[in-house]
């Protein structure tokens, strides 16, 4: 009975789940760099590169796994080279440069008609992708990203984000770490794009445009950039919310905008921080009842 109801719920929501998983990978690609203090949005450009590479190879008759692997390898190579080019840029300048890169990828996709099919994009891509491989990839990414933010290694990235000169004096080769986060971001974006193309069967050059950049960034800001869990939360929320809010129509952007302003003002750590604070509340209340001064002593209070 329960199994039947779960499976019927799943059947009704499979597309939603697939979209959430793909957007989660894309959101991870933005989160992993933001957490390291690298304001890169290049993941969205690599979403396009990944989707075209995997789709075109597949249409050429390549098997599924090698097509995706080839796309990933290409993205590692291009990501590494792009990082070399952008190594001196920081913050807003890096964000601008990577957005420019994303838009350039779109321009190439639109105009290199011989390869990409031009403005019409690629259609008739074999639908070789199922939900399970995407799910497993997303779970794998979460595990690996979890490792990347834990322990001394994870805190090194935090140190780089919060105080780069300090990180240098702690023997952290900050440019190598930043470079590394950048390439990981490119791979995650690439996977999201490749899976999307192989799951839905079409690519348009406008798929990975400015809207996708804003969407991916919004997911991470709203969910919380300090952890992959925040990015996942943002991906779930911003994929599911538009379906629930179809009645508000074009006012949806206003809802997003309002949410962003509220979060940026009062919750810079995103919804994840709010959730964590909520979960900590009972324990803190208990502590407070036992000894009111202990809060400051254990430093639970975040200044």
């Amino acid at each position: 009975m329960a199994i039947a109801s779960i499976s019927s719920w799943y059947a009704g929501n499979e597309t939603l789940i697939q979209n959430i998983l793909i957007y989660a990978l894309l959101a991870f690609s933005v989160q992993v760099v933001l957490r390291a203090g690298v304001f890169s949005l290049a993941g969205i450009g690599f979403y396009a590169i990944g989707s075209y590479t995997a789709a075109l190879l597949l249409k050429k008759g390549w098997p599924t796994v090698p097509s995706i692997l080839a796309a990933v390898l290409l993205c590692i190579l291009l990501g590494y080279l792009l990082a070399l080019l952008l190594v001196r840029l920081r913050d807003l300048y890096l964000a601008m440069a990577t957005v420019a890169f994303d838009l350039m990828v779109g321009v190439v996709a639109t105009n290199w008609t011989g390869l990409t099919g031009g403005p019409l994009g690629v259609t008739g891509i074999p639908l070789v992708m199922g939900t399970l491989p995407i799910f497993l990839t997303a779970v794998g990414a979460m595990l690996l990203l979890g490792l990347l933010q834990r322990g001394v290694l994870g805190r090194s990235f935090e140190a780089i984000r919060e105080d780069e000169p300090l990180a240098l004096t702690l023997a952290i080769d900050t440019s190598r770490y930043r470079h590394f986060a950048f390439v990981i971001s490119c791979v995650l974006g690439c996977l999201a794009g490749a899976y999307h193309a192989l799951l839905f069967g079409t690519i348009e050059p406008t798929d990975a445009g400015f809207e996708l950049i804003v969407l991916a960034l919004s997911m991470v800001i709203i969910g919380g950039f300090r952890s992959w869990a925040g990015a996942l939360l943002g991906a779930i929320l911003l994929t599911w919310l538009p379906l629930e809010l179809t009645s508000v129509g074009s006012w949806l952007n206003l809802v997003y905008g309002g949410l962003m302003i509220v979060l940026a003002t009062w919750l810079p750590g995103g919804l994840l921080d709010a959730l964590r604070a909520l979960l900590r509340l009972p324990a803190r209340l208990r502590l407070l009842l036992r000894s009111p001064s202990s809060l400051a002593a254990t430093g639970e209070e975040r200044g």
């Binding site: 001394v152 805190r155 090194s156 935090e158 140190a159 023997a171 080769d173 300090r226 430093g299």
Partner: peptide
Amino acid sequence: RLLPSMDVLANVMLGGATHFA
């Protein structure tokens, strides 16, 4: 220049992991 996002031990551990880093 201590990092406010982590506790004292974690801050000092960053100084003790120079070989790893």
